[in-house]
Design a protein around this nucleic acid. Structure first.
Lengths: 248, 248
DNA sequence: GCCATTTTCTGAACGCGTTCAAAAAAAGTG
DNA sequence: CACTTTTTTTGAACGCGTTCAGAAAATGGC
């Protein structure tokens, strides 16, 4: 995506009302074009032209094309949240809630299936601000995890405290995995993804029950300690990277 | 990576000895440069120049930069295979064998850590020939899975037939996950990845024992049917895509 | 209202991966 | 050897994301 080895990551601070308008104008135009033509086919030049600004100006507000995609994430998450609301008020079992939220997620993303691969292909690049684990993704990521938190706490399921603490994060990870599958799913209407969801939700529900069994406590504790540790370390990695950046 | 929406994927057939020499010359130069400077920093122009051929000629043999990376995969896999040999002859438990193979894998990849992110970031793009699930990756992937097959069959562990059939593939998937973690691991000497391996191998060993318990049979069968089905579907997807391509 | 400062905006330029028509070299054929 | 055909090789060109010096516009202080 970015050609330089040290991609710009800090967004400009907007000071004037005109600036706010310009920024909104650019991102809206970009999202429209992306919806219409796909991501690769939408060039920065086309965005600037349709928005009626210069190419350089678009870069003033969005230092890279990737930053426009963050806006895309934000929007689809908001849509997903709104679309999940009714199901979360109706369903009371963990299984029912998870099933509904996952299905709604995929249907929210459906219009973007053709070019979603491009959006997510940089996800594995630690340098890229698109990376779902990156600092700049934190706002969207945390909101997304919060949805799974609500999903768990609102259900009548009773699981051990240690597990329920990590469960929202684990479910978010699971949901990322499903999206990865969905990207590769070229079946009509992505039926296979829906079937995957049906089966994995069923399986997850059983596994959670199993893991809640007192007999499983040692294995569960081991696994959860691992998960917690990894989350810590990802955080640590980043603060080290920041400290190094400050000295360079 | 590629700018066009329909990337070229078929490699040229080489007919002459001179062609073979040119091709080898280009890929060797490329791998040298990539090792030396990293992936993004190694431009196709630089490769062509150092190899003493024109830019267009480099593209004649490797239709995209991504295709050069396939060669990289191939090499590191061969190194990994060779380096795993001694451990596979010494260790007899599944746990010991898996631990050794995983540790050797990471140490094989170590020289490339800096730019590995770039290599793997396209992994999630279904259109990209780099994609580990893509047809063009099949040779390397299958060889890699074969290593895990040998790892399992050579161990004295006894697991249910249904599980042992899918185990090599599952371990390959696990190994891909560890690589993903390693990419993001900026700790000195990637110590965290090694610790992750230690812990997850321990956990996997316990999980495999658990899953082999007759009491777990229903859940296990359900999970394995899911895995097998997904593998089938990935294959189907591709043949559909091929059929469509033939008509266009 | 005037001026200095800050913010927004412009457009040319750069280097990149990739493409392609056509030239050069090699191989095949008699 | 002369010829046609195939394969290899060239280098200019294209469109892309991105950068940057400087112009234009808006803001804030007096």
């Amino acid at each position: 995506m970015s050609k330089s080895s040290n991609p710009k990551t800090t967004a400009r601070v907007i000071k004037t009302r005109k600036g706010k308008r310009s920024r909104a104008n650019i991102v809206n135009t970009a999202l429209d074009l992306i919806r219409e033509k796909g991501f690769e086919e939408t060039t920065m030049r086309a965005i600037a032209e349709k928005a009626g600004v210069s190419l350089g100006n678009a870069y003033h507000y969005y230092p890279s094309k990737a930053h426009l995609v963050q806006a895309f994430y934000q929007r689809t998450h908001e849509e997903h949240l709104a679309a999940s609301r009714p199901a979360l008020e109706k369903e009371s079992t963990l299984k029912g809630r998870l099933l509904a939220v996952m299905r709604v997620k995929i249907s929210t993303l459906e219009p973007y299936h053709e070019f979603a691969g491009v959006l997510f292909k940089t996800a594995a690049d630690p340098q890229n601000p698109l990376n779902p684990f990156a600092d700049e993704s934190a706002p969207v990521r945390n909101e997304s995890i919060k949805l799974f938190e609500e999903l768990v706490t609102g259900s009548k399921i009773r699981v051990p405290k240690d597990l329920s603490a990590e469960l929202p994060y684990l479910l978010w990870l699971y949901h990322m995995g499903v999206i990865l599958f969905w990207i590769h799913d070229s079946s009509p209407q992505q039926r296979r993804t829906y079937r995957l969801i049906d089966r994995t939700v069923d399986l997850l529900d059983k596994l959670i029950s199993l893991a809640s069994n007192p007999l499983m406590s040692p294995v569960r504790k081991k696994a959860l300690r691992l998960v917690a540790e990894l989350r810590e370390e990802i955080r640590d990695d980043r603060s080290i990277a920041h400290a190094e950046a400050a000295f360079s």
